[in-house]
Structures are given as structure tokens and as C-alpha cells.
Design a protein around this nucleic acid. Structure first.
Lengths: 143, 143
DNA sequence: GACATACTATACAAAAAAGTCTTGATTATC
DNA sequence: GATAATCAAGACTTTTTTGTATAGTATGTC
């Protein structure tokens, strides 16, 4: 039950974009300097975020990245989904044990029900927190 | 934002113990057969669960494992903590980037506040679900 | 239109985690 | 008290994930 590095760092990059927040694109170099990450790694993160339509890129000399939408309308749920696809989903499909393709609990699977309830809770919380919340306040959000 | 295999499988083993629930110890072989896992792997899981005082073992011929406490008093929070220590904690200590030992956001770290809020939410939910809830009902718990 | 800047995409290496194996210790039964 | 059953603990291998490197494409400026 934890955040992956991709989720953590990707989120930070988005927050930095939101903070610099102008119309002027922010370059990978600027982001990587600001966050203490390698340019190559930031490139990969931005690639993932762009595929999920969270950032928009401009190439060439004055190029860089801007948020694709206002930070206020960008939820943590979307962000994590983009950076670690299929995380909170399909538990019974992933963990099947060695008995073959099907879950040994097939039919009366209680784990599935619990996990569903749990993931709904978590996603519910993540949907109520926007990137703007994080970008603006150093204080705890009581969303 | 996902469960690790250890958390998933370890939880299942506990549920199985709760279901068989007698005074008679359940052997590793029985658990591994029931869950479709290798005996060696179940051994490792039970080792972790015992260190956390969630199960109690008896050696020798009629040995095996029993729950250390009633399943009703055993929360998912404890279980996950036992199987993946330090998961929902200390994010800023773990992900520091390349700028050295300290988080580049030191001082005005908004991520830390957010993550704190998030982990409190999740733990709050996990504390309200017991192993007994999962062992008994195939339906969704609205805890 | 050549060149430098900057993103795009994939292949590769390194690190972490998962899962297996082996050796050892303990206990009931005969 | 010898034997078979069963857990204990750590070393080892395999797989997955993370992070890096590299080759390629687009664009603004001179």
C-alpha cells in the first residue's frame, strides 16, 4: 500500500508546472533542476503525463511543457492513473496463485469485495484533491 | 498506489486461518494447498505475520499456525504494516531526488502535507476493517 | 536553410522486490 | 531416544521496476 517513485516524482513535476503556471512553457531542464532529478528521468515522466493528456508540449527553441488544463480541474486520481496504470484495479485477475489461470477463490471471493470497497474509498479521496490544492498551500488539505 | 503481492497473499492466508478458525493448528501445507501458493512462500509469509504477533506457531508433528488474537480484533492496518513495513510513511525521507540527502522541498514541502492527509485517510479506513469482516462475508463491507 | 534547442521514443542497465531453496531447530509419537 | 513432521531463518535466484542512455524528430532563430 504505497506510492511508486513514478507517482511521487511525476506528481511533483506537475506541481512545479502549476506553480510556475504562466503561459510560457517550462523546459525539462528547468523542471529537473528544480526537483533534483535527472533530465532523462523527467523526460520520461513528462512523456507519461502527456500521453494521459495532463500536460501539453511545444517543441523547438522556446519549447517546453504547460499543464493541459487548469490545475484546479486535475485530480490526484488522474495523475496516479497516468503514472502507474492499472494500479488500483483487478486484484483477483493479477494475483491468482499457482493453481492456474483462475483465482482459487472464484465464486465466493471475499477479497475482491473488500478490495473493491477499499479502492473506492481511496479513489474517492484522491478525486477530491486537485493539483492546485498541492501547488498553492504548504498546509494540509482537509478535502 | 497499490497492494504489494506480499500484502495481498499474506492477507489471504490470515483469512484462511480465520475461516478454519479452530483450536487445531493449520499447517503450511494446508494453507498453501488452499491458496494455490508454494509452501516455501507461505512459510515466508507466516514468518512475517508471526514477527508481527498476528499468528502463533507450534512446532513438531501436530504443529502449525493459529491466529494470535480473535480475527475481530485484527485490523487490515496491522496486517499490511506487518507485511510491508514502512509503506505509508516518510515519503519525503525516501524520495529525495539527486540533490543530496535532503528533500529539495525542505521547509515548504507541500507534498509532505498532502501525503500525510492521504495516508491518514487510508489508514483510517483500514483500521475499521477487521480480518473477521473478510473471513465471514463474501459481500462488500460498508465499514 | 543550417544550426542549436528541445521534445519523442525505445532500448538498455541497475536496483529493488518477489519468490525459491536449503539448512537447522523443535516436538509428538512410537 | 530415534524418527518423522513441522516451523525458523537466511541465502540465493528470478522477475519486475526504476532510472539512464541513445538515436531520432520537430521548431524557432539567424
Amino acid at each position: 500500500m504505497k506510492l511508486s517513485p513514478l507517482e511521487e516524482y511525476g506528481l511533483r513535476c506537475l506541481i512545479q508546472l502549476a506553480r510556475r503556471g504562466g503561459v510560457q512553457p517550462v523546459t525539462i531542464r528547468q523542471i529537473s533542476d528544480g526537483e533534483g532529478l535527472s533530465p532523462a528521468y523527467v523526460g520520461k515522466l513528462m512523456f507519461l503525463l502527456q500521453k494521459a493528456d495532463l500536460v501539453r508540449s511545444t517543441r523547438g527553441v522556446q519549447g517546453g511543457y504547460v499543464l493541459a488544463r487548469p490545475a484546479r480541474e486535475m485530480t490526484l486520481n488522474e495523475v496516479f492513473q497516468a503514472l502507474d496504470p492499472g494500479a488500483l484495479e483487478d486484484v483477483c485477475g493479477k494475483f491468482t496463485g499457482n493453481n492456474g489461470a483462475a483465482c482459487v477463490h472464484d465464486g465466493s471471493c471475499s477479497i475482491k469485495a473488500v478490495w473493491k470497497g477499499l479502492s473506492e474509498r481511496i479513489n474517492g479521496y484522491l478525486e477530491r484533491v486537485s493539483v492546485a490544492d498541492l501547488a498553492q498551500a504548504p498546509q494540509l488539505q482537509e478535502a
